[in-house]
Amino acid sequence: MSSSEITARVLNPGKAAGEAMLLDEPLSFWGGFDAQTGIIVDQHHPQRGGCVAGRFLILPESRGSAGTPAGIAEAIRRGVGPAAIALGKADVNVAVGAMVAAVLYGVEIPVLVIDDGDRAGLRSGDRLEADRDGRIRITAAESG
């Protein structure tokens, strides 16, 4: 098992660990995502049917839906939110959803921005651990 470390920009601080889940395309957390179950329901999304609950979610960005903050906050409220979210670019709606959920529900989900290069080295199934400063420790999945 190999491990390494990358540094991310912090949009919402938190400490979390989880198994990586990589999304190939942006996701709308309202409309494309069921906040009651944590499942991706966008019929056109490559990872449709996947459940983000407890996963270290890695995606390019959210799709431009004004409802994304609510979808994230509602999923966190129900306990089916991701453990952490790492984006390809800074995204106001994702950050705001996590900030509000942290205050309302006391659950701090880190929202981070990582470089394309760092993202390219990640595989679904890797174990990731983030600290509050944006350092992410990666333990590669077996036979990855």
């Binding site: 979808g71 509602e74 409220r77 309302l104």
Partner: peptide, 14 residues
């Protein structure tokens, strides 16, 4: 504002 459009309990909590 649009946050007054009900989108789940989180909206009410906010």
């Amino acid at each position: 504002i649009d946050a007054c459009f009900y989108n789940g309990q989180a909206h009410v909590d906010f």
